[in-house]
Design a protein around this nucleic acid. Structure first.
Lengths: 197, 197
DNA sequence: TGTCTGACAGATATTGAAATCTGTCAGCGG
DNA sequence: CCGCTGACAGATTTCAATATCTGTCAGACA
């Protein structure tokens, strides 16, 4: 068996992303994916039970890739306030870069994510865990004063929804956006920091 | 001239709301509105230059009506922290009540608002002004410590987007929602309060 | 034996012709 | 004179026929 012609889930996902990039979400069909791989569409169903599951797998790949730098930041060390600020700004930048670089692809990703509820839910939970990690580091450092870290992490995530949820993407390009982000981050940091007299 | 048969913008708006309620946004036509008023559709165009402007006027009416209790709260007196909390909770309740009581009507309102950009923008600015009013009251009372009231009001508005923007409406019914709102409000209040040692 | 194919049924999407709607305006009637 | 009507052109929507797609499966092929 030639390694290159073995049909694996990985190869299918790769081809699916290509097809999505070329045709867009609404036009991309399983038949297109099969054609790109030079197999019959029945073969694709051997690896993914439905088009929906294939779509979800693609969504998961994208989200995981996008999440990687944030995982590193959360795992890092250093003063928690700076790290939290950096984490939030990075989270916003990743999304904003995506939408600026390739708005059409972003629309595809958005529509994809809207369907893949479970995948997105898991992704959000991971994000909250990352914030919680930084917050608890901050508490340990004596920089933050927080009753319930997990709950507060949720609150920070909720409070920043406007700058990471795709539903608000069209607002991100506005000129007043950066200063509003600054104000929001400042407000949130004040909300978790210990009282320095 | 009989008062009842004079065709006024007000009567047209009333009839338009009725028609929207009965047929929904996608099915409602200017002809339907005219029929409800027992006039020709040409007459409607005498008062509103286009269907879009009629739609915008309806949106404005709705938003203004919804906003009324919030205006009163902001104008009131009493301790600012309690007032801010009450204001935010009321804002959320108004939206959540709308979506629970009549989801179909809410969908109509949502679609309507998506089209009426300017009207919605003005409405949001008004909301921010109301928050700013409470914040500056709080500063005067020595309860809040805020550099730039207007900017912070914006930040509070942005931070609570998840619970007043219709794009997130489907999350409002979830059981964990109230506790997440509590956490968010607590975080924001901590962010504006003076440091009490 | 296990992977892949290709034909098939039912579901979904496309298409173009017909129907309806929006927005205009000349003229009617009070 | 002034507000309203109703017919009209162009834009938009509907609808049903047609084409394409999804998901299955019996059998080919290695």
């Amino acid at each position: 068996m030639n390694e290159a012609v073995v049909l694996t889930p990985e190869r299918i996902l790769e081809a699916t992303e290509d097809v999505l990039r070329r045709f867009g979400l609404t036009k991309a069909t399983v038949v297109d994916v099969a054609r790109a791989l030079d197999v019959s569409h029945g073969s694709v169903y051997r690896h993914f039970p439905s088009k929906a599951s294939l779509r979800d797998a693609v969504a998961k790949r994208w989200l995981d890739r996008a999440n990687e730098p944030l995982c590193k930041l959360a795992a890092g060390s250093g003063p928690a306030p700076e790290r939290l600020e950096k984490w939030l700004r990075t989270a916003f930048n990743i999304k904003q870069k995506k939408v600026c670089d390739d708005p059409e692809m972003f629309a595809t990703y958005l529509a994809l994510a809207q369907g893949a509820r479970e995948v997105v839910e898991a992704y959000k939970d991971k994000q909250v865990d990352l914030i919680a990690k930084i917050l608890s580091d901050g508490v340990a450092q004596g920089e933050f004063e927080i009753d319930d870290v997990k709950t507060t992490a949720r609150a920070v995530f909720d409070a920043t929804v406007r700058y990471h949820h795709p539903a608000h993407a069209e607002e991100w390009a506005k000129p007043e956006c950066p200063s509003r982000i600054d104000a929001l981050i400042a407000l949130l940091l004040r909300g978790v920091r210990v009282c320095k007299h």
